[in-house]
Design a protein around this nucleic acid. Structure first.
Length: 414
RNA sequence: GGGCAGGUACCCAAGUGGACAAAUGGGGCGGGCUGUAAACCCGCAGCGGUAACGCUUCGGAGGUUCGAAUCCUUCCCUGCCCA
């Protein structure tokens, strides 16, 4: 009874809105369908915020349905104003193309595009050749400006200004859906809840042009319990690309999540069965860490592979593990900088070194941190501004620098 | 094209000739408490300097003045209203 993938998605908290729940459940419970999700080519990598659509795609793929991942090479040229307070700066065509390629490569790790059971397309392919007047006559006439203006998604922009180019975004996205319907029989589009209006514009367009009924589904826009957007932290964005964010730090992101988020995240970002999640959720007090570790290692495994997940878990537990000396901290995962022996012999001002390696943004800040007892050498606080680093600080592992509680950097001397 | 209102630090937003490196708040950072959590408490806040102090900042460029984020000129940008 609960084998319908629709119910599973619902239970795991993936669904914000759907066009027609009964129809969609029937569809997803029946023969394989083709569905699509669009990704903006606004950056060179996806980040944790995109994991929800990715997870949904994987779920549906496992249930036998066919995913199409659209990279928005065409739509990104225009820029989606939905829910935005101001216009995004324009990206060059070249940047958009490069971003799109990078994103396709990333999505491939999750969805394994083969061109048949799993497709990766770029909407630039059919949007860029469009003829303006023709497009207006064939597609534009189906859109009511009145309705678009009434949409919640544009409300903010109506107060602050909305340019014509952005106003067209919805038409292009709707056209995407139509195109995919005609060419690939795509009958479900999904996206973030802010895309609801754009997605419905697509189902409407298909109804008007083809007289067919297709479906729409959106995912909730997630924030952490403390209100932050998914995938952003003080240290930066939680990229999915290991060259932009080490698997170790990716893992740390999940372990460091708010207690209140663990259950929700386990359902969304892992494939653990609900029964198991229920048990993890029931943990109390410091045992919650176990649930967080499960979350982190599953999520890391999905994105970076099982091997990387194991490694990061080991290094994390040695670094933060209870009691025993800190010597076991994972040196390999730690960023490092090499300096010359002569330099060390001459004595180095810590403020200078911390700034040089990026643990502080300026010498002034480094000094401030020292005054606040926030800088450490080999886990010992730097007590005075005059303190110099020299060979006495050199350990077999180099010199371990630390700013605050969690930011480490290793100095290798050669 | 015309009228009006604006453009201040990461964000919101005060300040309208000197005491402004720039209020308050949010966010951030450090410390404490803890469970690598939350909440809470204390502290920090351009850059250089132990400091005195110096240098650079309030959309851009010029100017007035002993002295400008604050006044003038001009340019750019944003919003509202009118065409």
């Amino acid at each position: 009874m609960n084998s319908n993938i629709y119910d599973i998605l619902k239970e795991r908290g993936f669904i914000a809105q759907v066009s027609d729940e009964d129809a969609l459940r029937r569809m997803l419970g029946g023969n394989p369908i083709t569905f699509y999700v669009g990704f903006d080519s606004t950056a060179t990598s996806l980040h944790a915020g995109s994991l929800v659509p990715i997870m949904v795609m994987k779920h549906l793929q496992q249930a036998g349905h066919r995913p199409i991942a659209i990279v928005g090479g065409g739509t990104t040229m225009v820029g989606d104003p939905s829910g935005k307070t101001e216009m995004r700066k324009m990206l060059s065509e070249d940047a958009i193309r490069k971003n799109g390629q990078a994103i396709h490569a990333q999505l491939d790790r999750y969805l394994h595009f083969d061109g048949k059971k799993s497709l990766a397309l770029d909407n630039a392919d059919w949007l860029l050749p469009l003829n303006y007047v023709e497009f207006l006559r064939e597609i534009g006439r189906h859109f009511s400006v009145n309705r678009m203006l009434a949409a919640e998604a544009y409300k903010m922009r109506l107060e602050k200004g909305l340019s014509f180019i952005e106003f067209n975004y919805q038409l292009l996205q709707a056209y995407d859906y139509l195109h995919l319907y005609q060419k690939y029989g795509c009958s479900l589009q999904m996206g973030g809840d802010d895309q609801w209006g754009n997605i419905l514009a697509g189902t409407d367009l298909i109804r008007r042009v083809e007289g067919a009924k297709v479906e729409a589904m959106t995912f909730p826009l997630l924030t952490t319990a403390s209100g932050a957007k998914m995938g952003k932290t003080a240290y930066g964005t939680i990229w999915l690309d290991p060259s932009l964010l080490k698997p170790y730090d990716f893992y740390q992101y999940w372990v460091n999540c708010d207690d209140r988020d663990v259950g929700r995240f386990l359902k969304l970002y892992t494939f653990l069965p609900l029964a198991e999640i229920k048990q993890l959720e029931a943990l109390k007090g410091s045992d919650i860490r176990k649930a967080k570790q499960a979350l982190a290692s599953e999520a890391t495994s999905i994105t970076h592979g099982e091997k990387a997940a194991k490694e990061t878990q080991v290094s994390a537990s040695t670094a933060f593990g209870t009691g025993e000396g800190k010597s076991g901290r994972d040196l390999a995962a730690m960023p490092s900088t090499t300096i010359s022996r002569e330099r060390l012999t001459g004595g180095i001002n810590p403020a200078e070194l911390f700034t040089e390696i990026g643990l502080s943004s300026s010498r002034g800040e480094a000094k401030r941190l020292i005054k606040q007892d926030g800088l450490y050498v080999n886990d010992k606080q730097i007590k005075s501004l005059n303190q110099q680093l020299n060979e006495a600080d050199l350990t077999p592992n180099g010199i371990l620098l630390r700013a605050g509680k969690k930011k480490y950097h290793r100095i290798i001397v050669k």
